[in-house]
Design a protein around this nucleic acid. Structure first.
Lengths: 341, 341
DNA sequence: GTGAAAGCGCTAACAT
DNA sequence: ATGTTAGCGCTTTCAC
């Protein structure tokens, strides 16, 4: 059932039917009711491609998920964020076009998305410190919202981020309050923008208590179990090993725990682990996690909000850039006990 | 740069340019080269909507991700599967349209996808035992491939599945070989088709050794840490508790481990855990997992293949249904030790 | 080998 | 308040 068929069935012109369906003012109430009723009865829905061609807008948003060339791995955070964004799109009648791409030809994908006019805007995931995508998308005049921030960007842009700096400041501060003085940082790769901010928060909290950061108990690696394990193992072998670990995510924290246990140390007594984790909710409720404390934020909610910001921006591309900073929530797990005195 | 501009710049008609670009036979080699060269120079790419409108095909595939109404949770398996499918789409020039939907109005989404002609086909995720979507999609004449199978379907359909029955048969057999006779099954919800097949494999392996399944050591719950914990705890409190657990996935297996440890039992000595897990690779390499053995399959590869099957089906919708059964790989973790004699 | 014109299904400017 | 017509950007008959 196309518009032509529907209008024929009603004995009206396509125009009138279209107008009635799209809520135009100058169409009689009686006609409108008839049209809407018939549309429902025939289960008519306009062809999205034709509509978008006529309207000039795709009514779709692109999400480009980078897949690192080195490690075949999809960050599980994406799933939640995407789900949240999807809710917003569903509510406002937008489609989500997902492209999974190796990070060596991201640029091509963005250009393609723009020139084929498949989408009205994009969400930029996993930004790096000086991410070239900001510039690229500005040049392409493609509205976009970055999930995260780009520290060294020379253009202004819209973003939604979690306050990683503060989250790590507070977590470090928490450990300092417990009496810890040797606090290790097991960070993610510091080409990622969020990792830089996390380290900044950690260092600031130490500085506030007059503690100089010690590079030997700071690592910056992939967020894998193995990387966490190796980092913790070598740190624990130091003459003055850390008594606490601040870990970038649940996965490497599992590795840190393994290294700790392997050394015969007791979690929460000899050593405390605090890990930031967005997905913790997946696995368990916080109090049932034996060894972790988490600063947790709602990634799902972030996705919802980022999508709203983008649709807003698409509606008014010439407006000012939009920003939004979410605060992480500090959730205490059961075995981040006080430092043994 | 649109087709009109490009053809004007070349002093040719749109027709000729279009033909040259799409590899039509009757256009001189010289012209073709000129056109292709110019298209590259101007970075011309056809408007996807216009093209798809003219061609009648959307060149896009839909993935509908169900989000359970009861438990706000996105199955992490989707991420990997989607990534794999995305590779296939990228390779063959298709788009992926993702819709996240609460399971109470799936039907609406499928109908919409069909009548708005946004996609040429869909992948059906997370099928239930008698999933109404098979019938619905057949009625809508929308090509589809199910990731999994639908036991009680009265239509024929295309699917790609992992051999869950055999995976659980082999895992159970493995435990029986170790001398275990009280083997618990901590299964997923048995409205899901895969859970039924897993139970069938488990029961068949027991039957082969003349062991009757005991409902008191079989559970069927959400695959959460908490559910695994509760199931294992109550089973361990039985007069004749299990000596081994066969668990549906890594997450509930974490809960089972918690229950085991809480009871002061030693993993791999008093109790063995074997868990099926598709995503295990995310967290760690198998040998670094302290307590698990996994039957693992490559979800990513499954995504790639399913997408290929679907595109094949889209190209020839009247052809026979396609089927593909993948075998799971049995991976042994370090502490699934022999039963203490 | 190339071009003019119709058509994909819709919306919107312009009549009436 | 309703209809006629043009146009969105492409592909594809059909002429030449």
């Amino acid at each position: 059932m196309r518009l032509k068929d529907l209008s024929a069935a009603l004995g009206l012109s396509q125009t009138t039917v279209s107008r009635a369906l799209n809520g135009y003012p100058d169409v009689s109430e009686a006609t409108r009711r008839r049209v809407i009723e018939a549309a429902r009865r025939f289960d008519y829905r306009p062809d999205a491609r034709a509509r978008s061609l006529a309207l000039g807008a795709a009514r779709a948003i692109g999400h480009v998920i980078p897949l690192s060339t080195r490690h075949e791995m999809v960050n599980p955070v994406f799933a939640d964020f995407i789900a949240g964004a999807g809710e917003t799109y569903a509510r406002l009648g937008y489609d989500m076009v997902l492209t999974v791409v190796r990070d060596d030809d991201e640029a091509r994908v963005y250009r393609e998305l723009a020139s084929t006019r498949r989408v009205d805007g994009v969400i930029v995931h996993a930004p790096r410190v000086a991410d070239p995508r900001v510039r690229l998308l500005c040049d392409l005049k493609m509205p976009f919202v970055v999930h995260g921030r780009v520290s060294a960007a020379d253009e202004t842009y819209s973003w939604l981020d979690v306050n990683n700096r503060r989250a790590f400041f507070r977590a470090t501060d928490f450990l300092l309050d417990l009496g810890h003085r040797r606090i290790a940082l097991v960070n993610g790769l510091e080409i990622m923008d969020f990792a830089i901010r996390r380290r900044a928060g950690y260092e600031a909290a130490l500085a506030d208590r007059g503690i100089a950061p010690d590079p030997r108990i700071m690592s910056s690696e992939e967020m894998t179990e193995g990387a966490g394990y190796r980092a913790a193992r070598s740190m624990l072998a130091l003459p003055d090993p850390p008594t606490a670990f601040l870990v970038s995510s649940l996965i490497p924290a599992l590795g840190v725990r393994r290294a700790v246990e392997e050394r015969g140390l007791a979690m929460g007594r000899d050593v405390s682990i605090v890990c930031h984790d967005d997905e913790l909710g997946y696995f368990t409720t916080p109090d049932s996690v034996p060894v972790f404390t988490a600063t947790r934020s709602s990634v799902r909610e972030a996705g919802r909000l980022a999508a709203e910001m983008l649709l807003d921006l698409v509606a008014d591309p010439s407006g000012p850039p939009r920003h939004r900073l979410l605060e992480a929530e500090l959730v205490l797990g059961q075995s981040t006990g006080p430092l043994r005195s």
